[in-house]
């Protein structure tokens, strides 16, 4: 049974009132949902709240799901919309403690030098992502995390597959530019 069929089976069980199936569905998708929300919001608390709300919306509207689209397409659309609304609400910038350089230094103490370099690069990517538009972050996250096809990403973001492809290229280009800026600032701060 592939992932899509598994989701369909679980959704049918949820529609029949099986709460264990709902729990299983949450456990299957919680990390992806949380990651998408976290990359957009950059706050663990907000991302967790958004991901939890998205799962509650799934439960509330599960009877209206008609199995024509993939569950993940429907679900990530809910997560993205909720995260986007939250981002608009959060006008005040709040830096997450776990994202601060001090926190990363502490968490890096036990790692090898290669791991440290990798972690630093990934932290830089996360920081660069904060400078991107929410839909760019979503496109990059879906493209790399779930290894979803362009058609699926297009369905989630409600654009055509060709447009999705172009937008993913542009988003990565913007990310590369942000990374460049970030490294330049790092070098400047060292000098």
């Amino acid at each position: 049974m592939n992932d899509e069929q598994k989701d369909i089976t679980l959704l049918k069980r949820i529609q029949a009132g099986d709460r264990l199936a709902y729990k299983e569905l949450i456990n299957r998708h919680k990390e992806y949902a949380f990651t998408v929300a976290y990359r957009i919001l950059n706050s663990r608390e907000d991302a967790e709240e958004i991901a939890q709300d998205a799962f509650l919306q799934v439960f509330k509207n599960v009877h209206s799901f008609n199995f024509e689209a993939k569950f993940t397409t429907w679900f990530y659309r809910i997560v993205f919309n909720a995260a986007l609304m939250q981002k608009r609400k959060n006008r005040i910038f709040t830096e997450d403690i776990s994202e601060s350089p001090q926190a990363s230094l502490v968490s890096n103490l036990s790692d090898s030098s290669e791991d440290i370099r990798k972690n630093e690069r990934q932290q830089a990517i996360r920081r660069a992502m904060q400078q991107l538009q929410a839909d760019d972050v979503l496109l990059i996250t879906l493209f790399y995390l779930q290894e979803q096809s362009l058609e699926e990403i297009a369905a989630i973001t409600q654009i055509s597959a060709d447009t999705a492809k172009v937008k993913i290229h542009r988003a990565r280009k913007r990310l590369a530019e942000e990374m460049k800026k970030h490294w330049k600032e790092e070098v400047r701060s060292l000098i």
Binding site: E31, T35, Q122
Partner: peptide, 12 residues
């Protein structure tokens, strides 16, 4: 490659 290697964030 860094994007491809980025792990999933863990929930509470």
């Amino acid at each position: 490659f860094d994007l491809a290697d980025m792990p999933l964030e863990k929930t509470s």
